[in-house]
Simulated scan of single mutants.
Amino acid sequence: MPFGYASPEQIMRDRAEYARKGIARGRSVVVMQYADGILFVAPNPSKALHKISEIYDRIGFAAVGRYNEFESLRLAGIRYADINGYTFNRSDVTGRGLANLYAQQLGMIFTESIKSLEVEIVVAEVGEAPEDDQIYRLTFDGSVFDEQGMAVIGGQAEAVAGRLKERYREGLALPEALDAALSALTEPGGDRPPSAQLEVAVLDRSREHRKFLRLTGPRLERLLTAAAPPEPPAGTAPAEGAEQPAEPSAEPPAEPPTAPPIGPDGDIDTGSDE
């Protein structure tokens, strides 16, 4: 056997493990349906690098992992959409076709390149009705998953997806969907990230032509305010069954009986020089 030989199965396992570790180091991204379209939410303190972008009129893109790697995929998708929309018809550009293109590229790089791409992406297309929406999740090896209602990529994806499933339901309004996404992205007992560290966008089916809309500034602040859990107003009665605080007694407490002295009066010597 030649020195340094490794079986193909071992090589594939090593590449997959390498890619998974790189993707898990990032923060999760949530893509989910709401009443009027599809919502994208990503914790992202950077103002220059975007995890969420527009590909075409009705198609959005979200990614985690190495920025330079998924940015090249995003640009390739835009070129594919522009060329096909101009050559044939704009309706020929679909999320399914784009997902197949990405699957071919990712699969070819995973099998033929020494290093696999450390990326995981979501391609989402909004339809005329909620049942026409499409969400595709693609992994580093080119596998495609047709997600129903929501998708979570990157970071602690399983834990975030579990928390999101507890709050997700069909037909959520946008503030409710944003609240569910932020609750899923926040660790139990932790604080939600401020608006300056959030990247939020929607594919709104009610918009004309271009459906993609990035939510920033006062618009995002209003949504976060509407999505925040209400605080109980001051002076409200406690819930039934809650313990009532003890009311102070009107009578002064009785003074304890004075015990006979057991030592001389004065300061006690503690042994210190003070």
Rank of each mutant, 00 (worst) to 15 (best):
A151F: 04
I153A: 00
V152N: 03
G155I: 11
G142C: 09
E208P: 06
E158Y: 02
G162M: 10
L172M: 15
I135R: 03
V144T: 08
F140V: 01
L215W: 01
G217I: 02
P188Q: 11
I135L: 15
E147W: 05
A161R: 12
T186W: 08
D191V: 08
Y168L: 07
S143F: 12
G190K: 14
G162E: 15
E208S: 15
L215T: 01
P218F: 04
L224R: 04
P175T: 04
A181I: 03
L138N: 02
P188G: 10
L213Q: 12
Q156E: 12
G149F: 06
V144S: 02
G190I: 09
V144Y: 09
V202I: 15
V202M: 01
Q156N: 15
P193C: 10
G190Q: 12
P193W: 13
A228W: 00
R214P: 03
E187S: 12
E208L: 10
A159D: 14
L178A: 05
G190W: 07
A226E: 13
R167G: 06
V160C: 09
D179A: 15
G171A: 05
Q134L: 15
Y168K: 01
L203I: 15
R167V: 00
D179L: 00
D146S: 13
P188R: 13
D133C: 08
D179W: 05
T225E: 08
D132Q: 10
A196M: 06
R219E: 13
S206C: 06
T186R: 13
E199R: 01
A227V: 05
G149R: 11
V160L: 08
E170I: 11
